[in-house]
């Protein structure tokens, strides 16, 4: 018992000592799990003499929940996805970047300079972008896969072998594309039809899983898996005979963005970090690591050549359109929430 107490006391003392060490120039990043190379953060630290502290979240919604619960004011920058940028802006959680505050703002690729989710890039800069569609095991099914029927009305070879992402936004957006209806519909007949279609489709699904979406494809436990393009590429590189689909009906596109948070304790360093990520060489390091696209001009010469020909990142000419997940108003969202609960009840 005595040794135990001694160990405890020592541990406590050491832990407190470790806490006391903190530097002056700091930058606190709130970032997705595991999606930025540590070397890049070290490079920024070295170049600007700033101590970088990073905290992580696992979904756009948990980022929002944590900031709502009062964590705002402790972080400088965060990396929300497209629709979450407009939600956060609507919640007044973002600070505005004044003209001229970012030296490298001219580097933003023209097609990403004025996105619908942040007109005029007042609060954000592009980080990474990609798509969410699905991969199909070609050993199991050799027919046409570029249709949302694979998920919602599958051929008999694939029925019962489908893994969906456990994410309301992605599943319902894909379902809306399949039905050819808007993502935030107010049409009661359309919504009823969507509800009925999902109930029926669920019978063909094996599981909802986001955490091991790649693993179930590689292991062969699932023959179809809804998945992000980068994960689809990794599943293929790990030896699964899978092909990433670009459905005719369309597919989901997403973009993560670095935003300047309101009440950022180290605002100047946050801007330095944003400028740093707008340099093609730096953002290319993220792309090479995460296998997603960058939204910065002049990045191509720094990219891993394999990325340019990656089938998951280069849709065929006849593919449907890529669409962002839309933000519905409260009343409409309530109906979609009910549909999702119905699906999983």
């Amino acid at each position: 018992m005595k040794t135990l107490l001694k160990t405890t006391a020592t541990a406590m003392a050491l832990a407190l000592a470790a806490n006391a060490a903190s530097a002056e120039g700091k930058l606190v990043i709130y970032h997705w799990f595991e999606y930025i190379p540590q070397e890049l953060l070290d490079k920024f630290s070295a170049e600007h003499g700033v101590e970088v502290v990073m905290d992580t979240y696992d979904s756009n919604e948990s980022l929002l929940a944590s900031l709502k619960a009062g964590a705002i004011g402790t972080y400088d920058v965060a990396v929300p996805g497209d629709y979450m940028v407009s939600i956060m802006a609507g919640e007044g959680m973002l600070d505005t970047i004044a003209d001229g505050e970012l030296a490298n703002s001219g580097n933003i690729a023209p097609e990403w300079a004025d996105p619908s989710f942040d007109p005029g890039r007042k609060h954000s800069i592009p980080y990474q972008w990609g798509s969410t569609s699905f991969s199909v095991n070609r050993d199991v099914y050799s027919g046409d896969i570029n249709t949302t029927d694979i998920l919602f009305n599958p051929p008999s070879e694939l029925a019962g072998k489908i893994n969906m992402l456990d994410s309301q936004g992605e599943v319902l957006a894909m379902a809306s594309l399949h039905m050819g209806m808007p993502q935030c519909s107010n049409d009661r007949e359309q919504l009823k039809a969507l509800n009925a279609m999902l109930q029926e489709a669920k019978g063909n699904w094996a599981s909802f899983n986001s955490d091991t979406a790649k693993e179930v494809l590689v292991s062969g436990d699932a023959a179809v898996g809804q998945i992000y393009d980068g994960f689809g590429a990794k599943a293929r590189e790990e030896g699964a005979n899978v092909e990433y689909a670009f459905p005719q009906q369309g597919y989901v596109v997403w973009m993560d963005n670095v935003v300047l948070l309101k009440d950022a304790p180290n605002r100047a360093n946050a801007l330095k970090f944003m400028d740093f990520l707008l340099e093609p060489e730096n953002i290319a390091a993220v792309s090479n690591y995460a296998r997603y696209g960058a939204g910065v001009s002049g990045v191509s010469e720094h990219l891993d050549p394999a990325l340019a020909t990656l089938p998951e990142a280069n849709p065929p000419a006849d593919a449907g359109a890529g669409v962002f997940i839309e933000v519905c108003n409260e009343e409409t969202q309530a109906v979609y929430d009910t549909i999702w609960t119905n699906l999983k009840k």
């Binding site: 606190v28 990043i29 709130y30 997705w32 799990f33 595991e34 999606y35 502290v53 990073m54 905290d55 992580t56 696992d58 402790t74 972080y75 955490d211 790649k214 693993e215 994960f231 990794k234 995460a290």
Partner: peptide, 18 residues
């Protein structure tokens, strides 16, 4: 809070990329 990790949070973080 920012920057403090325990084994479970570090492990959950790592497996998000597989």
């Amino acid at each position: 809070g920012a920057g403090v990790e325990t084994l479970p949070t570090a492990i959950f973080g790592s497996v998000k990329q597989g």
